[in-house]
């Protein structure tokens, strides 16, 4: 049966057409597919319509990039070269102005398994040299993954540093970060920090709540809930559907908003969701994540990529 025919059948049967993208291999297994949460706005997750509204003045946006490559081997041990960077841009009259920016170039390798001369050679070449955990058994691909975890952490740390610098420069400004706010523990209790999570790897809701949250109509938000994280200050979160998902994947246009838990994080959910709807324009194309990537965050990434230059 033709592709379009199946979609019609599903729609006629009360379902929603999917994107129908072709794939040849299963994706990487989800590491943390499930979490738990407590609903803090009502007793169940509801779809709440939001009214688009103006964004508050002086909002800033923080994002980061990371790049790496395996630049060599000592035997079967990889040496990873990496670049991480982060920047915070403040919006003033529609224009984005850089407030804080940082970058770091470094090498990552399982130093514990290298010889003295190999370590010295790397240290002489690059000032910053971070160790990665050696695998329990020697496996080049696994050791690359462990090195990339170091790169991930360094990027998060650089982002946290930029966030602090921004807060010092603009103590009262609203800061939107790309990803979860939990990476910025220094801002616990800071209601002016807002996280926009684009990936939905961890599902905190359950049962009918998941269906309600994941099938939100465009221009709707879910009720506020409190995801349970292992560490850090309590967080409030809710979903917002920015773009229609019919004919696309179920997460198309769906973002999850996070704030450190305060009284305002529930009462201001409508307002924040409203101006997030306005942030749909301009589109952040040609980025493939344009349906969830806010344009100012896209600009932060563009800026950092331009500053990083070519990778050679």
């Amino acid at each position: 049966m033709a592709h379009a025919g199946i979609r019609k059948v599903i729609v006629r049967a009360g379902g929603v057409a999917g994107g129908g993208r072709m794939a040849t291999h299963a994706g990487a297994p989800l590491e943390t597919p499930f979490g738990t949460a407590e609903i803090v706005e009502g007793d169940r997750i509801r779809a709440i319509p939001v009214i688009p509204r103006e964004a508050p003045p002086g909002v800033a946006f923080l994002g980061g990039i990371q790049r790496y490559s395996v630049d060599g081997w000592f035997g079967a041990t990889p040496v990873v070269r990496a670049h991480v960077a982060a920047a915070a841009l403040c919006r003033n009259g529609g224009e984005l102005v850089t407030v804080a920016t940082r970058h770091e170039d470094f090498l990552v390798a399982p130093l514990a398994v290298l010889s003295d001369s190999e370590r010295e050679a790397l240290a002489a070449r690059e000032e910053r040299l971070y160790p990665s955990e050696p695998g329990s058994r020697r496996h080049p691909l696994l050791e690359i993954q462990l090195a990339v975890q170091v790169v991930d952490r360094r990027r998060a740390e650089v982002e946290a540093t930029v966030a602090k610098e921004y807060r010092e420069a603009k103590p009262g400004g609203l800061l939107v970060v790309d990803g979860s706010v939990t990476a910025h523990s220094a801002f616990a209790k800071d209601s002016r920090l807002l996280g926009i999570v684009k990936s939905h790897e961890t599902q905190f809701l359950n049962g009918a709540d998941v269906v309600t949250a994941m099938t939100l109509e465009p221009g709707h938000r879910s009720s506020v809930f409190a995801p349970k994280y292992e560490r850090g200050a309590p967080v409030h979160s809710w979903y917002v559907r920015l773009w229609p998902w019919e004919g696309q994947d179920i997460t198309h246009g769906l973002v999850r908003v996070e704030r450190y838990a305060t009284d305002a994080s529930v009462s201001e959910a409508d307002e924040i969701s409203g101006w997030l709807m306005r942030e749909r324009a301009p589109l952040s194309t040609p980025d493939a994540r344009w349906d969830r990537l806010l344009y100012p965050i896209h600009r932060v990434e563009d800026l950092l990529r331009a500053k990083a230059g070519s990778w050679s």
Binding site: G94, E95, L96, W275, R278, P282, Y295, P296, R299, D302
Partner: peptide, 9 residues
């Protein structure tokens, strides 16, 4: 006539 909150680069 809709005005985006952020001006394009």
């Amino acid at each position: 006539t809709g005005e985006a909150p952020t001006s394009r680069a």
